[in-house]
Write a protein that binds this DNA or RNA. Structure first.
Lengths: 153, 153
DNA sequence: CATAGGCTGGGCATCGTGCTCACCCTCGAC
DNA sequence: GTCGAGGGTGAGCACGATGCCCAGCCTATG
């Protein structure tokens, strides 16, 4: 794995704050030469430090202000079919296989409470899904953040 | 709420694929005039359709390849203190207040299994936290995605 | 001491940006 | 039907940013 030095991390942090920041702006902000930022940015991009696509769209602006976490138990034999079915549901934002009481953690978005119910019903109808449990997000207490990992301290 | 027409959605989708795409490139890609893309992009930005910062950094590249969901029961009276304590833990990526059996959904990242345990212990020591339950992410089955919401069908 | 790797500042052609303008549609109001 | 408003188009222009050179300067390493 590529190790990021202080300079790399500061560039990544600047890019996290504004993904559309120009090379020149970052260079000025960090007090570095333009060429330096340019070279490191290319290295970071080719080293897969940056995810292939950003999640910069706010679902609320797309008419889906509600969010929920659905845990599910599934029949292990039907895993592949289950994933294929899940993909067909646009409101399913992420699916992770987990340890613990349940096998799946599914994050969904929805238009309203009724819609949350609809989507969980759709999940229940996916192949191999046995039992689901839904936690509706009432409030974002700490918004998704990674900058504290990029620049510790 | 701003309603996004087909053109807006295509611009947002292009930006989701590559947050650093130039206005000119998007215009060419979508077969639109440069000025059109420029104007709409400004409108989208000022309408808070795009999140203030992207989550484009991969925690794995930062030495935190493991991920887990921690649910917790908390003493409601200590909510504010609990959140302040949680913020102090760099590995805490997101905290949401939820309905359901538990009060909190906490997403964490970690260096390895031991580190997951350490972080959950830190969460347990936060003010007002009574009981926690940890689900370690074993496999990403559907990677976080929003494009299917931006461009349905 | 010598070498290699990284940062710097400069220069340069090219491309992208932000802005303006004239022009063309289309749609709803009068 | 006529009118104006709103939005898209294509062109032009000054300026900024990019990608790519190169020479020079450090510092760490052998």
């Amino acid at each position: 794995m590529l190790t990021l030095d202080e300079t790399d991390r500061r560039i990544v942090a600047a890019l996290d704050r504004d993904p559309r920041a120009t090379v020149l702006w970052i260079a000025r902000e960090l007090g570095l030469a333009r060429g330096t930022v340019h070279a490191r940015l290319e290295r970071l991009a080719s080293a897969d430090v940056l995810a292939p696509h950003s999640v910069r769209v706010r679902p609320a602006a797309l008419g889906h202000p509600m969010r929920a976490f659905v845990t599910a138990e599934v029949d292990q034999a039907e895993f592949d079919g289950m994933i294929a079915d899940m993909r067909q549901i646009p409101q399913v934002v992420e699916v992770a296989g987990t340890s613990g009481d349940s096998d799946l953690m599914v994050e969904i978005v929805a238009r309203d409470a009724d819609h949350v119910y609809d989507v969980t019903q759709q999940i229940t109808r996916c192949r191999g899904v046995r039992r689901t449990s839904t936690r509706i997000v009432l409030r974002d207490l700490v918004a998704r953040r990674l900058d504290q990992l990029v620049l510790p301290g």
